[in-house]
Design a protein around this nucleic acid. Structure first.
Lengths: 155, 155
DNA sequence: CTCATTCTTGACTAAAATGGTCAGGAATGA
DNA sequence: TCATTCCTGACCATTTTAGTCAAGAATGAG
């Protein structure tokens, strides 16, 4: 399991835009320089972010991109969903496809594990805002949260 | 983000083997039938599980595979690690590659988000044993655990 | 001892996802 | 009016995923 480059890039772009929130819009090319991401690729990602309503674009000279909403109202969940379409793909749907072919049918004991994992990931992403990332520059995000400790390894 | 077929298959195989724990070993082909997974693919996955020490193989007639340890001592984390090599790939390592090229260097605010996500996923997988999956056939795993509720969406 | 059974190894392939590039066009405002 | 900037969609290379295949080596039942 991994974080794709698109997600990584999109998050970085959003954080950069968050830092500029309230100021003049940033052109895609400028964003590419700042975040060290291929310029054409940046444009592609920005299109998705715009279609999801997360950023607003302005054409013409002195144009560029800016956040549609204040950084504290934007979560990583929204960014991931904008780029990937969903946060966590439901496993059963790959096998279901409308038919009776699903290997999960009947007394399936496993699918709840994946479903729950999806919930956990989604919840976590929902809990992280751009504002929080900006504020915690030095890595306060890195600590294991208290509630996580409640999960005792090995059952 | 998604669960790959290999992971899904491996988990299913392990659960099936867990149900047979203590009885005669199950041949790979038999496992393939039971779990509805391509036979040759099953063999490949079983090899990884064996190399990780999770299952034991017996050759010859009446041979097959069996769990190396009781179901309550085997976690999903171990299964995932056996198949994928790791539970969650560290994002920075993809860019690092030993050079100064890492876009996460300096005051990177984002990488802790991915690191923490990795911890959360790993912890969750460590908390689910084969025994637990077997016992909760009807889907008790599906409920959102209490500790998860502590994560308030939107920061 | 022999032979069917079963695992072992490793190469091979097709399809999908990922990561990235490119070109032509349409708006905008200086 | 024209340089700037976004917009659209096609295109491509690489990697990963999913699955297949074949030759061979153990093993134990008979």
């Amino acid at each position: 399991m991994r974080i794709t480059s698109s997600i990584e890039y999109a998050t970085r772009l959003m954080v950069t835009l968050a830092a500029e929130h309230g100021k003049a819009p940033l052109p895609a090319e400028r964003l590419a320089e700042i975040d060290n991401v291929p310029a054409d690729y940046v444009s592609q990602i920005l299109v998705k972010l715009r279609r999801a309503g997360l950023v607003t674009s302005h054409r013409g000279s002195a144009g560029g991109y800016s956040l549609s909403r204040p950084p504290r109202e934007v979560t990583i969940e929204q960014v991931v969903r904008a780029v990937d379409g969903s946060v966590f793909e439901e496993v059963c749907e790959r096998y279901d496809a409308g038919s009776k072919d699903c290997r999960h049918q009947g007394q399936c004991a496993i699918s709840p594990v994946w479903t729950r994992l999806g919930e956990i990931v989604t919840r976590y992403f929902e809990s992280v805002t751009l504002a929080a990332i900006l504020e915690q520059k030095a890595g306060a995000c890195g600590a294991v949260p208290a509630w996580l400790e409640k999960l005792t390894p090995g059952k």
